[in-house]
Design a protein around this nucleic acid. Sequence first.
DNA 1: GTACATTTCAAACAAGTGTTTTAATTTAGT
DNA 2: ACTAAATTAAAACACTTGTTTGAAATGTAC
Lengths: 217, 217
Amino acid sequence: MVNKTTTQDKILDAAEQLFASTGFADTSLRQITGMAQVNLAAVNYHFGSKKELIQSVLQRYLSVLMPRLDQEFSQLLACQKQNDLTAVLSVFIKPLLELNKVQHHGTRMFLQLLGRGYTDVQGHLRWFFNHHYGRTLDKFVLLVQQACPDLPASEIFWRLHFSLGTVVFTMASNQALQEIAAADFNENVEIEGVIHRLIPYLAAGIALPLTLSGQTH
Amino acid sequence: MVNKTTTQDKILDAAEQLFASTGFADTSLRQITGMAQVNLAAVNYHFGSKKELIQSVLQRYLSVLMPRLDQEFSQLLACQKQNDLTAVLSVFIKPLLELNKVQHHGTRMFLQLLGRGYTDVQGHLRWFFNHHYGRTLDKFVLLVQQACPDLPASEIFWRLHFSLGTVVFTMASNQALQEIAAADFNENVEIEGVIHRLIPYLAAGIALPLTLSGQTH
DNA sequence: GTACATTTCAAACAAGTGTTTTAATTTAGT
DNA sequence: ACTAAATTAAAACACTTGTTTGAAATGTAC
C-alpha cells in the first residue's frame, strides 16, 4: 500500500483549497467531500463538525508557524539592543515562506486562510487563535513598542490593527490582485514579492512620528 | 398621517443595520422583515431580490457621497500645482462625515457596509461600484500619482490596495476595535477620531520613497 | 476463521434560505 | 361610491445547508 493518503488528509487538502478560494461560509461540506472523493459523512465522523474542520485546517499551519515565530521573538527580546521596526517585521518572512515545506503552495494557502478567518467568521476563530497563541502575540507587540518608544500604547494598538487589515485584506484578495497586476503592469509577482512590498509599507505607517499625525486639519 | 415611513424605507433602515453588524451573507430576509415589521414578501415586491436590496442600501449613501468626491477631485485636478498626498486623502473627510446628515450614524454605517461589501461578496458589488463610479476612482488615482511622481504606477497600485485593506478592515471591525480601545486605554474615539488617525498612517505608507523599500533583505 | 472494532456508505433528517403564488386588503382616481 | 391599481399578507415552493442514522464493508487481533 504505497501512497496511502488517509481520508482525513484528503479532506483537509480539499478543504483548505476551497476555503482559501471561496471562504469558509461559502464552502459546503458537499463541495469538500466531492473534491476529496470521500463520503459526506466522513467529515463529521473524523472531525466532529464543520467548525472543528476549519480549526484543523488552520492548525496544520499554525502548529508549525507559531512556535517558530515565538522562538524568533524571544531571541530578539533577549538581546537588549533596540531593534529596528523593519527588522522586527522581517522576522515573519522566513517562517512564513517555510510553510511551503508543509504543503504545496503552503504560504499562499495559509495567508489566504488567515484572511478568510478574520473576515468571514465573527467569533470562534479569533477566540481559538488568542487562546492558543496569545502569548506569542504579546511578545510581538512588546517588540514593536520597544522599536517605537515614543509612541503611546494606544497609538500602537490602532496602527497594528491598521496593518493587520492590510495583511488580511491583501492576502484574502491575493488572487484577484495578482491577476490585475499581471494584466495591467505585465508583472508577475509571487507571494514572496508581495511580502517584500508589504513590509516597508507597513513599517512606514507604524513608525510614523506622532507629531506629524496631528497636523492633518 | 404624520410620520409616514414607507415600507421601502423601513426595510432599508433595518437592512443596513443588520448588514453592517452581521454581514450580507449572514443576514436573512426574515431577520430584516422581522426587524422592519413588514411582510417577508415585501422585499421581493419592492426590490426584486436580495441582491438588489443590498445594492439599494449602498446606493442610498453612494449617490450622495460619490458626486461630492468627484467634484472635489476635479477641483484639485484643475489647479495645476502638485498636491500633497495628505491633502488628497483629506478630501475624503468632509464628504464622509456629512453622511451623518443622510442617516443617523450614517458615516459609521456606510463605512461598515463598505467593509462588508469588499470582504463578504465576491463579484457583484465590485462590478456595481466600478460600473457606476469607476470614473471618479480614476481621478483619485491620478491625483495620487501626481502627488507621488517618483513612484511607478505598479507600486502605487499595490500600495493603494494595501491602504484599501486597512480602511475596509478597520471599518468592518470598527465596533470591536472601539470596544477594545475603550477597555484597554480608556479612550473613547468616534469614527471621526479613527479617520484622523488613519490618514497620516496611510499617507506615510503610500508616499514612502522606493529606494527604502528595496533594502529589506 | 471467527469475533470485534473501525471505517465507509447511502439515505434521510431537521432547519434554514430566497423566491413565488394566490388571495385579501388598502389606496387612489373618477 | 365604485372601480382599478397598488400594496400587504399567509402559505407554500424548491432548494441548500450541516448533521445523524443504521446497515454494509473493511481492517485487525486472537
